[in-house]
Amino acid sequence: MTTRRNALLTLLAAALATVAGPALVSAKDFPKPKEPLVINVVDVAGDLQLSQRALEKFAETHPDLVSKFVYTQAPAPELAGKLKAQQAANRLDIDFVLTGNDALAAGIEQGLWTQILPEYKDMFPDLEELYLPGAYAMQKMGRGQGFVDSWYPSGPLLEYAPDRVKDLPATAEELLAWCKANPGKFMYARPANSGPGRTFVMGLPYLLGDKDPQDPIEGWDKTWAYLKELGTCIDYYPSGTTVTMKELGDGTRDIIATTTGWDINPRYLGIVPKDYKVSTLKGFHWVSDANYMAIPKGVAEERLGVLLQLIAFVLEPEQQAFMYDHGYMYPGPSIKNVPIEMAPQDSQETIKNFGRDEYASLIADNPIEPPLDAKPLVAMFDKWDREIGAAKK
């Protein structure tokens, strides 16, 4: 009887373990590299501007794990196809990806990322306690396959040349009327490869009072009609945000879509004049944005262990302070309790000289919404490319 009872208890324990999920893993469960690794990093979000100093610090403090990082930058829309081809050929040469929610969403849809949570959650602190609320909302959208490394309320904001724009639009309807009266003088970039571009598009349902701002296919009737009409007075849609900044700075455009970071950083770099202004439209809601760290499926076991330690390292307060950078994603840090005083002195000077006093009240006094989740985001990109972007080709 005792033997039978023990056998039943053993079976019950096994069943419960199966229900509870896979066994959790810690760093000590991974084989240590026989020699320091060269880690290949692909950045499709401009994230290296914020995170490279943190990555290099990891190599400095963990010379037994990493000898150096090799960096490559690429357009976000190309990443999923490249990863898929390498994984199919079993010849993966990308170890670590820095991405916005554009390429992250495409990779989630196609099953290209390593599932980090819950399997490896013991390698990280309590994420809900760690992250700022807005960053944690975006962390959940990563489906345990991407980790937010930087976050900001984003936009949509309008940036304009005050010497050329005397009748500044105050509503979405006034922006459309202004665009028609000044053809070719307003611009935003292709949403699938531009943070300000997709933030502008995702912010319109709130401005226009659409049925469901989180459902671009069934809930954006007003938004799609507006975008089509707006397209009649837009010359073209650049493939990335930088072009919009250059054309605003050189006088080709008078108003563009921007975000807090894309406002501060190009003025710091001298691409856009320092005295250019930003504004919001009536009914404004922030649509937040973030950059993520992700690991492609198929990396070797010894590399996976090192990369998981790297992610945990980047989420430490000292490394998060680098995310202030030169305002690229203002404020930038994704975790709690990282004041500007922790940032490098050059970052503090940039924010002091090129930040805007009004951002504190804009962030405090307006709703902050999450962006579209992975599946609707991919659907939005596809519909925009087919129905809006294609009209200019």
Rank of each mutant, 00 (worst) to 15 (best):
Q309D: 13
D263L: 02
A343H: 06
L308A: 11
A14G: 13
K375S: 12
Q214P: 08
Q320D: 02
T223D: 07
L175H: 00
A390M: 11
I311K: 07
S150K: 08
D365V: 01
Q87M: 11
V25A: 10
Y237D: 07
Q145C: 08
M141P: 01
P296F: 00
T2W: 14
R4C: 13
A225R: 13
G389I: 08
M1Y: 15
K383G: 09
D254S: 15
W220V: 06
R5H: 15
F30R: 08
Q87C: 09
V97I: 15
M1P: 10
Y131H: 04
Y206F: 14
A80E: 03
S239W: 13
Q73P: 07
R4I: 12
T2M: 14
I39F: 09
V243D: 11
K274W: 03
F58W: 10
D93L: 12
G195Q: 15
L168N: 01
P118H: 06
I94P: 11
Q87W: 10
F200P: 05
R356W: 03
V70I: 13
T114K: 09
D235G: 15
G100E: 09
I108M: 09
D250M: 09
L98D: 08
V19E: 09
P77M: 11
Q115R: 13
P183W: 00
S279R: 05
Q139S: 01
P156C: 05
G184T: 04
I311Y: 05
S150V: 08
K246V: 14
D221A: 14
P63W: 06
L55Y: 13
K277T: 00
L127N: 05
A135T: 05
D126H: 04
L176A: 08
E301S: 13
Y152Q: 14
R386M: 12
E119G: 10
I340N: 02
K121Y: 10
G155E: 01
P273K: 09
S194I: 02
A80T: 02
D149L: 14
P133K: 00
P153S: 00
L310G: 08
S334E: 01
G155M: 00
Q214R: 15
A45Q: 06
P331H: 06
E35S: 15
G355R: 04
A161F: 07
S288F: 01
L248I: 08
D29L: 10
V19A: 10
D382L: 07
E173V: 07
P153W: 06
G21W: 08
L372V: 11
A177M: 12
E129Y: 12
K383V: 07
G219S: 02
L98T: 10
L127A: 05
K121T: 12
P33Y: 05
L79H: 03
M123Y: 06
F124A: 08
W224K: 03
W151M: 06
L112N: 05
G100L: 05
V97T: 09
L176G: 03
Y226A: 02
G107P: 05
A15R: 12
S150L: 12
Y152T: 14
D126Y: 04
K185S: 04
K211E: 15
N182W: 01
W151P: 08
K352M: 02
D122Y: 11
P162T: 00
L168Q: 00
F322V: 12
Y292R: 04
D93N: 15
T350G: 06
L37M: 03
P125D: 06
D149A: 14
I363R: 10
D210G: 01
N182D: 04
R143N: 15
S239H: 13
R303Q: 11
G261E: 00
Q309I: 11
W220Y: 01
G332R: 02
L269S: 09
